[in-house]
Design a protein around this nucleic acid. Structure first.
Length: 109
DNA sequence: TTGTTGACTCTGA
DNA sequence: CTCAGAGCCAACA
């Protein structure tokens, strides 16, 4: 095995998340066999005009990650709300309910 | 090659 | 959950 198409796998996993659900960097990382940092880096390297629902990827705390551009984080929240994701007063998503489960049998045994 | 940086997560208190 | 620190992998200079 090699690192061929590492980003492709990351994007593929993210694309597998249905509308109305969200996932975390750590979950995607485990699915592709890498770390959360790399997942974030892959999204940061995402070109304009992609069809990857990057907005459905949030951090383990259930909140959008504050990146340098500030605006993008706000846009992410708007997009998620547009998809039916509900936020609380702390701008946090209920991961216990809206977190998409990839391989239920594969999650931390 | 080493060193720095980044859309993070985990562990311990 | 919050706060602080360490670990982690990949890309770039």
């Amino acid at each position: 095995m090699s690192k061929n198409g590492l980003y492709e796998r990351i994007y593929s996993v993210i694309c597998s998340v249905p509308v109305g659900y969200v996932t975390t960097y750590g979950d995607v990382a485990r699915q592709v066999g890498t770390t959360a940092r790399v997942v974030g880096f892959a999204l940061a390297a995402l070109p304009n005009g992609h069809k990857v629902p990057w907005q459905r990827v949030i951090n383990s705390m259930g909140k959008v990650s504050p990146r340098g551009d500030g605006d993008s984080s706000d846009i992410q929240r708007i997009l998620l709300e547009s998809e039916g994701v509900r936020f609380d007063q702390q701008q946090r998503v209920n991961l216990n309910e809206q977190r998409w489960k990839f391989g239920v049998l594969k999650q931390r045994l």
